[in-house]
Structure formats: C-alpha cells, structure tokens
Design a protein around this nucleic acid. Structure first.
Lengths: 108, 108
DNA sequence: CCTATTGTCCTAAGTATTTAATACAAGTAT
DNA sequence: ATACTTGTATTAAATACTTAGGACAATAGG
C-alpha cells in the first residue's frame, strides 16, 4: 500500500509521466531491503487498474489511461465505497452520514 | 460484524426498542453454535458506542442514545471515513471521488 | 542461438487477527 | 445466605493474511 501510494504520488506531482520507466522490481527490493515479490504485488495491483504496464525483460512503465483503464479504476473506487458503506451499515449509519463525515474530514 | 448489523437492523426497523432486552449471550451462542465470547464482543462494541447497555446477572438492553452516546457514534463514523479515505489515497483517488462513488452507489 | 535482465508463479515461513475454551466476577432471586 | 443467571476477563487454538525464498518464463540484446 505504501508503495502504491508513493508511485501514485509521483505520478500526480508529475515526477513520473506516462511512458516513464519505473525502477526494476529487484532494484526497489534491494533498495528497501524487501522482497521482490512484495514490490511486484504493488506493481501488479497498479497494473490491474491500468495505472502501470509491465513487460517481462523490459520493465514496468507508467501507462497513459485509456478508456478501459478508467473503467477499472472506477470499479476499484466503487469497491472501496461499497466496503466502507457495509461497515457503516454494520454500525447503523447511512450513506449520507458517511458523506457528511468525509466532508468534515476534508475541512480538518 | 454480522451480529452488530442484525441488532442494529432490528433496532432501525423497530422490532427492538429502547429498554428491550436482547437475548442472552449464552442463548445467542448456543443458537448459532458459536462461542459466547464472540457474542459478547459484538455486544461490547455496541455498548462502546452507546447503542446497548449490559449488566451482569441482568442481561443486555437497548439503550436510548443520550448526548455522550451520540458523540461516541460520531467518533466511530469518523474513523470509518478516515480509513476509507486512506485507502482511496493509496489508489490515487480524492475525497470528492469517494463521495461521488457513494452517491452513485445509493442510486443503485 | 545464448546469456542476462525482467516480471511472475508457487510454496513455505512469519505475523496478525479472530474465535474458542475455560475460569471468574457480579448481580438476582429463592 | 446460597444457588443460579448473567456478563467479563484470560489464555490458548484456529484461522486468515502478509511477506519471504527460491524457481520459472518470457523478452532483450549481443
């Protein structure tokens, strides 16, 4: 999750642009003293929603979001919303309650 | 979570009203072929935010929400919002994105 | 072709979370 | 008072989840 956040932050600030190559799975792994598999998982999740694009022997790159990529991202967002909503219902809150709380959160 | 949801649903539909006694921890446990401790945890969480009120030797009852109870519930809601928001950021979404998704969810 | 580099899969180890088993404490009622 | 009913605490077992280790697969480039 931390890796994903960092990658997306780099993209949103512009230090990573569509087409740019990301550091290799193994590079990041040795840098952070972590397992390549963990890095791969972060990359894979971002590839799943169309943010990244990976090719064997080549590397991992920032994708430019096409139509279907946007759809996947929206799906993921809907999933997050769905789960948060389920939790809310489990505590007796409504959708509007949650929206209100989110707006309040933003003010802080 | 399932237990909490069921209790709250019963309250929201009016089949459980403030002052009503809930089935005993052990009753629910044997009914569902589950451990009393699990039931207790559900009850305890609902007591924590002021929804229920438990007394030894007596039983567990639906509380009528006073002022401080509402505050606790709000805290819990804020916590849910906070976590959902963190997850959103980890995938590059904003607060408004999430709010939009929630509204969309409601329509369905 | 053949070697090196890259992402990927599979299995096990580690870690955290949840549930169960049992014993305890406090209030109720006979 | 004493036995019973109820919620609660404590510790262990079970379960789920995450990370690591090592091997595999595909592509690139000489």
């Amino acid at each position: 999750m931390q890796l994903r956040e960092q990658v997306l932050h780099a993209i949103s600030t512009g230090s990573l642009r569509p087409g740019d190559q990301l550091p290799t799975v193994r590079e990041v792994a040795t840098d952070l003293a972590i397992n390549p598999n963990t890095v791969n998982r972060a990359y894979a999740e971002l590839e799943k929603d169309g943010t990244l694009s990976s090719r064997r022997g080549k590397g991992t790159f920032v994708a430019d979001l096409g139509a279907q990529a946007r759809v996947k991202k929206v799906d993921r967002l809907a999933d997050i919303a769905k789960r948060a909503l389920a939790e809310c219902r489990a505590f007796g809150f409504t959708t509007d309650d949650l929206i209100g709380a989110l707006k309040r959160q933003r003010e802080v």
